[in-house]
Nucleic acid binder design. Sequence first.
DNA 1: TCGCTTTTTTACCATTTGGTAAACTTACGA
DNA 2: TCGTAAGTTTACCAAATGGTAAAAAAGCGA
Lengths: 215, 215
Amino acid sequence: MPQAPVAQAGRKPSRIQLRNRKRILEAALEVFSTHGYRGATLDQIAAEAGLSKPNILYYFEGKEEIHVTLLNQLLDAWLAPLRAIDPQGEPLEELMGYVGRKLEMSRDLPRESRLFANEILQGAPRMGPHLESVLKPLVDQTAAVIDGWVRQGKLAPVDPRHLLFSIWATTQHYADFEAQVGVLMRDVDVHTGASAHLEALFRRLLTPGATAGSG
Amino acid sequence: MPQAPVAQAGRKPSRIQLRNRKRILEAALEVFSTHGYRGATLDQIAAEAGLSKPNILYYFEGKEEIHVTLLNQLLDAWLAPLRAIDPQGEPLEELMGYVGRKLEMSRDLPRESRLFANEILQGAPRMGPHLESVLKPLVDQTAAVIDGWVRQGKLAPVDPRHLLFSIWATTQHYADFEAQVGVLMRDVDVHTGASAHLEALFRRLLTPGATAGSG
DNA sequence: TCGCTTTTTTACCATTTGGTAAACTTACGA
DNA sequence: TCGTAAGTTTACCAAATGGTAAAAAAGCGA
């Protein structure tokens, strides 16, 4: 048995192993996020990581395992801002803080955002179960919290899930559609403008009392 | 010269040609929108279209030409709702109508939405010039109209481009992230809820007068 | 029905790509 | 410094995939 760190679930990984796995995942993030799963090749990832293709397959069982590893790592980080919402906090500020954090993530981790978008766009073929088991319970829980806030009159009436969709859509748009945003907003500080805009958008929606407009 | 309808720019195309090109594009839309450019194969498209692969290459020069054809057709249809905004109309209703139309497109043409999203996600490699020459002028123009409305006090102060981004993001989210939306909203009429939500979201943002919240 | 054009099919082909075998090299504890 | 395990490289392979050549089969006007 000459080699096999790949499926060696037990034992502590060596320093080299740690370093190279990290390199590979970093390279894979870069490549998968710009070309999608199918569009990415092991050769590209290898080149980006500064390793040979067989060497990469020494650390991961295959292309798919790399992708899945990336995706699973991602979801946790991705949901952290949602988990940080405090049911005991001030409703409006909790939600506005969430919007701000999501927008920051879109600016600071655009590749992660695009990796996720790519996966969902194609029907979440490698993530479906995870969405079900991780995302859904968390969203159900958060929705209940928001519903409670609404019933207490601390928030304007709003459908919690559609609210979350709006927040995700608007914030992630700056990462996922960067190519389009870039064409339409040259040489401007996109983030600052976006921040002000989303602040207004969601604060107006959620502030209780002043009902605007008529159906 | 036995065959060559592919690049035969002149002459009127035969009925068969018309029918088969339509079939191919329909099949290609289905396949490209779910798997992305690279993830789609000519064999899949051929199977979906009920034609053989070489037969497909009799009508199109290659995979890329099919994709580009689809993309170009798409952009026009995609921008129609934006073109339909009437600078002479009632500002708030014009924009709310635009939101409604975009949401309808997301529901009725999800594949087109995903095809577009796929292309932009990957940096618009086959669409960059088109965005520049078609999308940008139209957006600049629309932005000027909206700015005018704001200056006339008919709309709450808003950055026109960020407003458009928000509208695109929120409406297209229902098509592009359908896999995620489906997990979180089972057995519900998503569209109706979305319509009400977006109505409230954008009407509150845009209605002039009642300034909500504080920075 | 003939003859020519358009369409379609049957074989292929070259490249790309995910993956493997096995030799070779490096790291490192005893 | 020696031996073993960990890590890396070289040389491949089979399948998938975009694409082509050329023969066969429809279509169709006269």
